[in-house]
Design a protein around this nucleic acid. Structure first.
Lengths: 253, 253
DNA sequence: CGCGTGGTTGAATCTGATCAATGGTTGTGG
DNA sequence: CCACAACCATTGATCAGATTCAACCACGCG
């Protein structure tokens, strides 16, 4: 799980959560120090235990250091919808008013390592990183809506895996367009609005067409670039890139 | 559209947007004054014109005073997904970091009346109202995901109309569980991940079963309470109610 | 009056769900 | 170290909800 280097006190670049936040926006020393300090005092939550329960007041915002979690909504008749995943470097319970209650239950699919989220008053760059992270949260929800509303089963799988690839690579958790995905096909089904049987068939189709390599809990997207184009996915973007503005190709109808 | 009373300078309670924000959290005088002042200087955007375009930098946050708008995502092959609606009292472009770009296009289905959003530094209560509004935005996105992922076509329609009822009643824009909905069935279809043909059939089913009264642009939900229960909808809640905590009836599996 | 937009209807089709059974993997306890 | 139990992946057959295609109608507007 963690790297086996034990010489130095653990280089900052090896902590995926910090790596992610630094990738969102450059952090000043105060911000990095605060994160490193926070990450030294961790808490572990066993898999399948609620990290936050829907309707309960939000106590303390935390930063995910390791593990996969999800926002889950359970319907009265047993149907379940997974709203989105929460990965290392993601913030949980960071919202700006008193008396807030959790809008969804959050549960881990693996044991979770979390730490207290450093206050955003410690560094303006940290504050900015949190704000960007929040905007990305919203962007992921919107991407999920588009997937469920207008993509075919196969497109949903592909688009979802590409999103995970994008997110995990920000935290440095991918290798050669592959990553560890500790989810069952049942979980994937509850995410993508499908049945596990159909997820299974679509994964096979992805294998046969050479788009995917899927084993136990490993996924590799074979030609990420090409697949991105074929399913019409556009990468998530919430702030201005440093490149000159992208030319809008959209034709107003 | 607007009330025909012209005696007084227009009572605050008659401005739906302000009514909504006050319903979210009590506002102090500074906050109300700022809103009233802002609402006196309006701008109008014609229907079908972009209020904000995806990928463009966000210039100035605005408050919707009148009209219906939506966040829209257009796929390359012409498919369209409506992510959610923006109604009077909703905030647009209020996000906490520099260099942010719009994550989606926002277009009006009616002419929109908007005004500049008063700065959240003017009043702590205003700031709180904005934060709650933002949390509600997120809650609506999550509700939309659940609708698309796990509800049947009929349930989607019912749940959606109940949400609109809930939101519009906060702004005082409903009468006897009815409201004006300036959307075509095609638009509804692009919202709910269906085709317009199927939306039509589901609306008819709603009429036949006595759940709905739908005409031109008017909708009435006949037995809102009952319908809420039958489709298993739970009302949106992002902060602690003043009542004692609701007992959790959820059975952990 | 004619056209365009949006609503309504029917028939055929298809994507994905459901039901049911089999087989493989992992983890645990004897 | 093996045996068993759970859980998960896989496969086939059938079913159903929603789409597609194609009309037709009603209304508002230039």
């Amino acid at each position: 799980m963690t790297a086996i280097v034990t010489t130095a006190p653990l280089p900052v670049a090896d902590i995926p959560a910090i790596r992610r936040l630094r990738a969102l926006t450059p952090l000043d020393d105060a911000g990095i120090e605060a994160l490193v300090a926070a990450a030294s005092e961790t808490r572990t939550v066993p898999a399948r235990r609620d990290l936050i329960s829907e309707g309960m007041p939000i106590v303390e915002p935390v930063l995910i250091l390791d593990g996969w979690a999800a926002r889950v909504r359970q319907l009265v008749d047993g149907r379940r919808q997974i709203l989105g995943f929460i990965l290392p470097g993601d913030l949980v319970g960071y919202c700006g008013f008193d008396g807030a209650v959790a809008m969804t239950t959050i549960v881990g699919f693996t044991p979770l390592t979390v730490c207290a989220l450093p206050s955003d008053t410690l560094s303006p760059t940290l504050r900015r990183a949190y704000a960007i992270s929040g905007a990305l949260d919203e962007a992921y929800l919107m991407a999920q809506i588009t997937r469920l509303g207008r993509l075919s089963a196969y497109e949903r799988i592909a688009d979802f895996l590409l999103e995970m690839l994008e997110r995990l690579s920000t935290a440095g958790m991918t290798h050669d367009d592959g990553f560890v995905m500790p989810l069952t096909q049942e979980t994937l089904a509850d995410t993508l609005g499908l049945t596990s049987v159909h997820v299974n068939r679509m994964l096979q189709q992805g294998r046969r067409s050479g788009d995917l390599e899927v084993s136990r809990s490993r996924v590799r997207v074979c030609h990420a670039e090409a697949l991105t184009r074929t399913v019409g996915r556009q990468p998530t973007r919430v702030f201005l890139p440093h490149q000159p503005a992208v030319s809008a190709t959209d034709i107003p109808r």
